[in-house]
Nucleic acid binder design. Sequence first.
DNA 1: AACGTGACAAGGC
DNA 2: AGCCTTGCCACGT
Length: 119
Amino acid sequence: MIYKNKKKYIKHPGSYDRILNVVVKIPYGKVATYGQIAQLAGLEGQSRLAGYALHHIPPGTNIPWHRVINAKGMISLPKVEEGYHLQKKMLMKERIRFKGEKIDLSLYRWNPEIKIRSG
DNA sequence: AACGTGACAAGGC
DNA sequence: AGCCTTGCCACGT
């Protein structure tokens, strides 16, 4: 279990863990959208849960939460919060260029290895 | 067990 | 090029 809820560890492999298990696979210098994460976690259409899961990540993990952005190529955290600037800073350290507040997804979107199971 | 919430996404204007 | 509305549904209370 990767995250916990204040005091108690939440379930076993719930949706959150499935989501986080995908997030940890995002490589350096790449980003993924919430919807993309949800889909890869087997929760297509549940982009909100992806964001919700990330919201519950405790500090001190090795989860590259900063590599997850929304479909507009923007950081979803409120600009007034530290997290926003932290995320932007971390992304820029990974050589990801911002056009204003946006990231060009056509350049930086993570293309996960497509699992071909045909035999 | 019902209800409101939410680091989203897509469409309409 | 934005803002608003609607759909989505697991979580927490």
